[in-house]
Design a protein around this nucleic acid. Sequence first.
DNA 1: CTGGCAATCTGTAACGTTTCAGTATATTGC
DNA 2: GCAATATACTGAAACGTTACAGATTGCCAG
Lengths: 347, 347
Amino acid sequence: MDRQRTENNEDASTRERPTLKTLAFMTGLGVTTVSRALKDAPEIGAETRRRVQLVAKQIGYRPNRAGVRLRTGKTNVISLVLNTEQEIMSFVSDIIYGVSEVIADTPYHLIVTPYSRSQDPLDPIRYLVETGSADGVIISRTQPNDARARYMLERGIPFATHGRTEMGLVHPYHDFDNYAFAAEAVRRLADIGRSKLALLSPPVGLTYHSHTVNGFADALRDVGASEIPFSTVSIDHSIEQIRMRTAQLMRRDVRPDGFVSSAAAATLAIVAGIEDAGLKLGRDVDVVSKQSSDLLHLFRHELLVVNEDFRLAGSELARSVLGWIGGAAPGSLQSLSEPKGVVAYRR
Amino acid sequence: MDRQRTENNEDASTRERPTLKTLAFMTGLGVTTVSRALKDAPEIGAETRRRVQLVAKQIGYRPNRAGVRLRTGKTNVISLVLNTEQEIMSFVSDIIYGVSEVIADTPYHLIVTPYSRSQDPLDPIRYLVETGSADGVIISRTQPNDARARYMLERGIPFATHGRTEMGLVHPYHDFDNYAFAAEAVRRLADIGRSKLALLSPPVGLTYHSHTVNGFADALRDVGASEIPFSTVSIDHSIEQIRMRTAQLMRRDVRPDGFVSSAAAATLAIVAGIEDAGLKLGRDVDVVSKQSSDLLHLFRHELLVVNEDFRLAGSELARSVLGWIGGAAPGSLQSLSEPKGVVAYRR
DNA sequence: CTGGCAATCTGTAACGTTTCAGTATATTGC
DNA sequence: GCAATATACTGAAACGTTACAGATTGCCAG
């Protein structure tokens, strides 16, 4: 008994990682008091509180995550769920950095939960929820009727979607206004005299596919231009596929004189296809493309671009999830990012 | 007392997440026995073992990570430490997917630990080690004398570096043979008649900077070509800086007729700079560039490329860390990836 | 002076897991 | 036939935290 007490005291002076017990020993208080003092509980005297917090800071006390998690169920983890094959490349790095920025001075860690094409997208979500591995989840590739959002909503686990749903259910999201993007792109092409336009859209099934398609179609009608259908490929297709289809399309009698492209990598393929067909960008055809890093103008200075900021998306999504975890109303955690206009580069 | 027992029994039938206690109740065994049966301990009867494992599978038992972590200190977490500003974009997504692939059917989770330019690179490592947040760590931007590697080696925490160190200390790494890359690039340029070569190198200070520089210099000597110094910029500089410096360089009397570039994005800038100076790729100058995704040939078909597979790097690094955690000798967990040769594209 | 109450502080139990030190039963050696 | 031993199992304790249900003190109203 005495023996054990002595050992415990030694613990407190050892260079082991300090725990509440260490702090309790150093301050002469009980473990409970220390615990409460650190979280500013009201029933702790002001001086005691300050004293405990001072000592804690001095010796660099950090709560043990496993202890907290076991006792409370709180994981202090945000999970970012990503498709290993289809995510846009720069999306991954930018969104991670965006999220990181926001959680940097919180106790949260970011875990990346991947899933592959072959899997049900619900699998990783189920795993996270069933094992209680995260306090909040961020998903992308959002669908109008999204099983994952529905599932998490049912279980009451906070999440945010990159892209909106259309289920009549309210949840946090961040989205880029792809309707506005497509519409502005069309108007710009019309302004420079283009009237037969093709759209390389996001994959069918994702919500922003229809946003984009609608913005494109509505603006077409407004400006009185016509659409050259190009829906055999989407930005999810391989570079080679897009290039080949574009070349095919451009060799037809009735071919587009303008493209709207929803992703930068796909735009490289479109331009390659255009040139395969012996046509020239800026003369025979113009292309407006979304991009997330400022590289397309180096590729062909004739390209017209609209910037989408994925780092911002990551930050907003993280803020939303944290907000929901913190008790804010899900409906108040929605944001839409407007395109800043079509920009042209000149030599 | 009786009351409590009843509650516990109810626990077992409730749709709560099953624990060892649940399994113990269902099998009529003790918690200890169940725990051991699940990890194939030798002192458990063969039939009992099978029975327990069957029931566990049936009800979808998953060990509680917090419980394990608290008791054993094992986190089942691998941390990938990334610089938020300077990492190559595709590096981030590819390496994450590479790591994911390997840890997919292990109990490990991947956490991303970012740090910014302003921070000491050692900060995130210290945090991870001090808080015991991960069983293993992967770092990039490795330096010849790397404080992070030394630190982790001292504390005995398993890690792997992307890139080698030169401290005479042995640890797992994966590296691309940048010496071979630069040498092959030079030889190729010499083959097509180029003799005044410039190198856009990795940032000074990282180990692969000197690998690249040495490969470049040695091959230059071999082929009897000369170097046009271009060390005012590195691939860490902004696109604009590289473009401007390249243009300046190309307007000089004695200008390079060949470039070796260590990164794809930087190559875009080099080409832009070349064209800014009124020169033509493939006629006045050739460029050999590393790339990690197959996009450069779309940019300018005259470009010569060498592919570096970051997804492979991620897999190898993950394998190394897991190997070390699993008790393998650090020295046996090193790998070097050879460039597959310079490839040209034609229309 | 005493009962009540607010202000502070504390011990114990519990979260789910593994490990230590057993216990009970069957098996073996002689 | 009995001790020694192997086999199969078990309860209790511990990891670090928080919540619950007190305990102690001082102060004030009556």
